[in-house]
């Protein structure tokens, strides 16, 4: 009998605690509950994973593809925002390959519509702009599309500028899940997709909109803004979201 099989008297083999998973992110060990995602663990431990569609307090859709990470043993890249942790998982959040993909995705977003920061109300407070700087995007090498997109200023307090929209659907989700009004939705397919209010009516005519402004404040870019702001003046306030979520959970 080999010595490793001998169990010393008085000791028991260590049983892993049933509900805690241990995993490695970028070589460091972390523990997590099984229902948590890679992004949850990363966020708790101040590990940066880029993302644009994800917002704490809203459901996750895995649409922007910026949070893709490498997981050892999987030949596919997995979205950190929806991938649950498992025991012994080894995650790499950054690599030259991931960085290149992320930059290309941001580039594609810039080419898709007319993101002209110098005349944008959100200049300096924009998630897309910030993410591009953070990911080291210095220039866009794909040609721009320059679509003719509309601006709907029919609402008395808010404006939607489709030129700046990146279709993250945060507005759709916050209106549906938090406000419960479901004013916003997506219409059209592929490159022609756009967010609409009610059944593609002018926002000002919407009978369902409560004018709460949550959509405006979760919008990552200058697509949704409050009226009365000039270039670079539109700062978004999102503290309400974790607060509302927490209050709801405590009531449940």
């Amino acid at each position: 009998m080999s010595p490793t099989n001998v169990v010393k008297p008085g000791t028991k083999p260590v049983q892993p605690a049933s509900n805690v998973k241990t995993l490695q992110i970028d070589g460091k060990d972390f523990s997590a509950r099984p229902e948590e995602t890679i992004l949850d663990v990363a966020r708790q431990n101040k590990i940066f994973i880029p993302r644009l569609c994800e917002l704490e307090g809203l459901s996750d859709v895995g649409a922007c593809r910026l949070c893709l990470v490498e997981v050892k043993g999987s030949n596919k890249l997995l979205p950190a925002c929806v991938t649950r942790v498992y025991e012994g998982m080894e995650v790499t959040t950054n690599s030259p390959r991931l960085a290149a993909y992320r930059r290309m995705i941001i580039e594609l977003l810039f080419t898709e519509r007319n993101h002209i920061c110098s005349v944008c109300v959100s200049n300096g407070h924009c998630d897309l702009q910030w993410m591009a700087q953070k990911l080291g995007l210095t220039h866009v090498h794909f040609p721009y599309r320059y679509p003719k997109a509309n601006v709907d200023a029919s609402h008395e307090r808010f404006v939607i500028d489709h030129n700046r929209c990146i279709l993250c659907t945060r507005c759709v989700r916050v209106c549906d899940e938090i406000e419960g009004a479901h004013v916003w939705d997506v219409m059209g397919r592929g490159i022609d997709a756009k967010v609409v209010t009610d059944l593609n009516e002018a926002w000002g005519n919407s009978e369902t909109c409560t004018s709460c402004g949550k959509c405006v404040h979760v919008c990552p870019t200058g697509a949704l803004s409050e009226k009365g702001h000039a270039v670079a003046e539109m700062e978004k306030r999102r503290h309400f979201l974790p607060y509302l979520t927490m209050m709801r959970e405590s009531q449940e």
Binding site: R65, L108, L109, P143, I166, V186, I191
Partner: peptide
């Protein structure tokens, strides 16, 4: 693929457009 992309994720929505171009 470009016309049938649902438009949800960025690589497919914009990538197919760029490839088609």
């Amino acid at each position: 693929c470009m016309t049938e992309s649902c438009g949800k994720c960025v690589p497919c929505r914009v990538g197919t457009y760029q490839m088609h171009r």
